[in-house]
């Protein structure tokens, strides 16, 4: 097969999908996890992702909704019958052009050039393949939010969306925290969890607009840089911890610090844009929907391959449905958590 370009991209995607399905029996491991309205079954080999595709998720509890079955193959040439991934040729690569060409063929896809790493998904049949050069040859962010593009494509196909947002709640109601990296989302979520609030995610949550704005958990991982780790007292709280991850952050699980099991959903009552203010006390003030949209949508759309226009419309709809506020963060975790808890309990500032 010649190097991949826009003209043969859809053919290559179909070839990769068919190859994995044909070799299904050769994948040594099967991992299954129940997610909201979805049973995700991953066929793969041993290695760094084998645990992540189970432990990296929060299994949906008490989810009586019918679940569709989604199959993902994590493939590499070490699995009998799987050919080495092709490289992208010399043709210009643009994310939008790549996604558009696949969408015209009814497919979804993503490519990370440095590793010849491909992800292809057929949303109609709910089958996907992650093709790598070797079993641990995946981008460093993959274990923290495993198989994220596949979930993005699958849930987008049913009108839901993975949002790049944090969340905090109490009594089944909650607030979405929007902003790009460094805005204070993760620190705010950890502050809330340590002080008795619930969360359905600090970086990605699954949003459903079919009955109000509801957020569901998918990924179990939380992250904090060393400064936040120290400020929030996590070293003492966690006892032991692993090494810094590829972002220079400590990585741990939500159930390491939460006082209650992760709720299966939070009904969102507001969209908040956190801001590190440097002031002593936290405050919550209205912010324009335009500013809230710009805090929420760009990173959510940039981090999820394809589906750009539908994502833009979805996040616009979400932003119009919720009152929007700027959350100026104080310095004490308990005070931040208390401010948010009071807001949620009162239903407003």
């Amino acid at each position: 097969m010649p190097k991949v370009n826009l003209d043969n991209l859809a053919d290559y995607a179909r070839y990769v999908l068919a190859q994995a399905e044909r070799c299904s029996a050769n994948f040594p491991l099967t991992r299954a996890v129940r997610l909201p309205a979805l049973t995700l079954t991953t066929r793969l080999g041993p290695g760094g992702l084998a645990d992540a595709v189970v432990d990296g998720f929060i299994a949906a509890r008490d989810d009586d909704a019918p679940a569709d079955a989604c199959r993902i193959f994590v493939a590499h040439p070490g699995i009998n019958g799987i050919a080495a991934p092709e490289s992208w040729g010399n043709a210009l690569f643009t994310q939008h052009g790549f996604a558009t060409r696949l969408a015209e063929a009814g497919l979804r896809g993503n490519h990370y050039h440095d590793l010849d790493f491909w992800q292809f998904y057929d949303p109609e049949r709910r089958v996907g393949v992650q093709l790598m050069t070797a079993q641990d040859s995946f981008p460093p962010w993959e274990p923290g939010a495993p198989l994220r593009p596949f979930l993005h494509w699958e849930y987008a196909a049913r009108g839901m969306r993975l949002a790049h947002a944090g969340s905090l709640g109490i009594g089944g109601k909650g607030v979405l925290l929007a902003g790009s990296g460094g805005a204070g989302k993760s620190g705010t979520v950890v502050a809330g969890l340590l002080n008795g609030l619930d969360s359905v995610g600090d970086d990605y949550v699954l949003i459903d607009l079919s009955g109000g704005v509801t957020a569901h958990p998918l990924f179990s991982t939380l992250k904090q840089d060393p400064e936040g780790f120290r400020r929030l007292g996590l070293k003492e709280r966690l006892g032991s911890h692993g090494p810094l991850n590829w972002q220079g952050k400590y990585q741990f699980r939500v159930d390491d610090i939460a006082t209650r099991p992760t709720p299966s959903r939070l009904d969102m009552i507001a969209l908040m844009v956190p801001q590190i203010s440097g002031g002593e006390a936290s405050s919550i003030m209205p912010v324009s929907r335009k500013d809230a949209m710009i805090a929420l949508a760009p990173s959510g759309i940039a981090q999820m391959p394809g589906e750009r226009e539908s994502g833009f419309r979805f996040f616009s709809d979400l932003t119009r449905r919720l009152p929007c506020y700027r959350l100026s963060l104080g310095t004490r975790p308990d005070e931040i958590a208390g401010t948010i808890a009071d807001f949620i309990t009162r239903g407003g500032p």
Binding site: S288, K290, I294, E309
Partner: peptide
């Protein structure tokens, strides 16, 4: 080039460039 309006303020996205 797609756009939405929020309380009279427009946000425009260039799908090609992001």
């Amino acid at each position: 080039i797609v756009f939405e309006s929020f309380d009279g303020e427009a946000v425009v996205l260039d799908l090609t460039s992001g």
